[in-house]
Simulated scan of single mutants.
Amino acid sequence: MKIFIGYVSMSGNTEDMANILKETLLECGCEIDLLDLETVDLHSLNSYDCLFFGAYTWGDGDLPYEVEEFFDDLKKLNLNGVKAACFGSGDTLYPKFCMAVDIMAASLQEQGCDVFEGKLKVELSPDEDEEVDECRQFAKLVYQWANKGEKLTYV
């Protein structure tokens, strides 16, 4: 299975999450392209079996400015039926914890993507074993869902 993992990270937290997802999916036998979303050729996205998008939440629950244009440009693509999953880091001190993850998922659904029901949201950085395990479990569940087309629930 060919998987794209695209992310944007300011402090490195979301990048750490992306790397955990990559390592886990490599163990599943997947071919992975891991890229900063600012460097992605949009038209290459149709060549993947599953897309992972990750971002930190900026300000009052906003997408980071670095990816606003990316998600606007994404509307030009036909993504009907493309499997996708969303993840990100945030800080519960802000009232809209990890809202960028929800914004990305909604945007992808509007574009016709089949978006994995669960969303991976991590407080700050995946430093603790529990958070690393949560990232690994998310990757495995999305892999199973995308590989078999089954709707699995992420807890």
Rank of each mutant, 00 (worst) to 15 (best):
G6H: 14
V155I: 09
D114C: 13
E128M: 03
I32F: 06
A84Y: 11
V122G: 02
L120V: 11
A84I: 06
G112N: 15
M17I: 15
L26T: 14
D127I: 04
D129W: 07
S9P: 03
F87I: 02
F87G: 07
Y154T: 01
D102M: 03
Y65N: 04
T153W: 12
P64I: 00
K2M: 14
A18D: 13
M104A: 05
W145Q: 15
D41Q: 02
V122N: 06
Q111G: 13
D114Q: 14
T153D: 08
D73V: 06
K22L: 05
F97T: 00
S89A: 06
G81C: 12
L34R: 13
F70E: 09
N13I: 00
G112W: 15
A105Q: 05
S47Q: 15
A105G: 03
C86E: 12
G118P: 08
F71Q: 12
F138Y: 12
A18L: 15
H43I: 11
G6T: 14
A106G: 12
E130D: 01
D129M: 13
D62K: 05
V82A: 09
L77I: 03
L42Q: 11
K151W: 00
G12P: 04
E134N: 05
K2F: 08
F71R: 11
V67H: 05
L63I: 07
G54T: 11
D129V: 05
L21H: 03
G88H: 06
C135R: 00
N78R: 08
G59W: 01
V82I: 12
S47W: 10
G61E: 00
K22S: 15
L77D: 02
M99G: 05
L141E: 12
D49F: 00
E23S: 14
K75N: 02
E69G: 08
